[in-house]
Design a protein around this nucleic acid. Structure first.
Length: 308
DNA sequence: AACGCCTACAACCGCGGGACT
DNA sequence: AAGTCCCGCGGTTGTAGGCGT
């Protein structure tokens, strides 16, 4: 019954990865493609558990990852999405194809949380309107608060998009059609820069062979999202889904959205499947700052096409 | 110059869902 | 059908580097 056990925990190395380990891992993935993580330690001789290998790949070595400072636009987008989705970092990361969920999570915990806290205490004095404070307030209050959060975030997002829209879109497109090494910041660790060079050849090959390759290259770089039935942002950009599937507005998901609005937990009001251009459409069509239709309304309405 | 505190981020841990046998 | 395991996710921790005193 079942499968053989995962990597035995005896002799498993922990702690920071060395450049040598990185190269071994990258070389292996270059040859076999990501996935089947259980086989990685045994086949490479790495004294790491499969989980650790996967984590190292997805959070650090994977091509197409943008490192370094978050832009204002990214920051605002994260704030906005966090207000909408809660701490669903993987879902949020699907809107920022060049950032990993771990990165976003860290950035939220270290920067944005404090930033928002400061703003709250500064602007609103003693009242706390934090995104996580809804547990202590009534449902009606929470809904109104969420509405305010969304409107505020929406305005910020619009500002960000209007300023950096072109850059953003070109970056996103470039990174989805091929790995955008030109955006890699200079602060990227020298060891991984070497690995980047190593990968460069591989990614060129991968993008050349393109989408027909089911198990390697660009189609695998976002396997985290796609393997869970949640198309990555890259996939969404390249092949937009019908609206119904984007918003999950079949009976079950609408029900889920409604229950999320009334429930204890902050859940997404739409499935995290469509990236920036959905948000842009939403902003541009609606008119920011004075739009009366919110995402809450969207979720409650059964007519998604009225948004566009 | 040395020390201690703070910040940022890489990595680990535990859990849940789904796949596999 | 049931047991087992893999994979991915979110929360948390450990540590290195930066900064102020």
């Amino acid at each position: 019954m079942g499968r053989p056990p995962c990597c035995d925990k005896v002799g498993v190395k922990k702690g920071p990865w060395t450049p040598e380990e990185d190269i071994i891992l990258v070389s292996y993935i270059q040859e076999h493609g990501p996935g089947n993580w259980r086989a990685v330690p045994t086949n490479t001789g790495l004294m790491r558990c499969s989980k650790s290998c996967r984590l190292r790949w997805t959070n650090y070595l994977r091509p197409g990852i943008k490192r370094g400072n978050f832009t204002d636009q990214e920051e605002k987008l994260i704030i906005h999405l966090q207000a909408l989705l809660g701490n669903r970092w993987a879902a949020i990361a699907s809107y920022l194809p060049e950032r990993t969920d771990n990165d976003i999570k860290n950035y939220w915990n270290t920067h944005l949380k404090k930033k928002l806290k400061k703003l709250e205490t500064g602007v609103e004095g003693q009242t706390s309107t934090g995104v996580s404070s809804h547990n202590s307030i009534s449902k009606g209050q929470w809904e109104r608060r969420l509405q305010t959060d969304i409107n505020t975030a929406k305005q910020a997002l619009c500002e960000a998009l209007s300023v950096e829209k072109l850059n953003c879109l070109s970056d996103v497109k470039a990174s989805t059609n091929g790995y955008n090494w030109s955006t890699a910041p200079s602060t990227y660790a020298s060891s991984t820069a070497n690995i980047s060079r190593l990968l460069e050849g591989w990614t060129r090959n991968s993008t050349r062979t393109g989408a027909s390759q089911a198990n390697s290259g660009s189609t695998q770089t976002h396997d985290t999202a796609s393997s869970q039935g949640t198309p990555s942002a890259a996939n969404c950009i390249l092949s937009p889904e019908p609206l119904e599937s984007l918003f999950g507005l079949d009976a079950s998901s609408t029900e889920a959205s409604e229950s999320s609005l009334l429930g204890e937990e902050r859940k997404p009001v739409f499935e995290a499947q469509e990236p920036l251009f959905f948000l842009e459409s939403w902003l541009l069509d609606e008119g920011v700052g004075h739009g009366q239709l919110s995402l809450l309304d969207m979720a409650l309405d059964d007519a998604p096409d009225q948004l566009f």
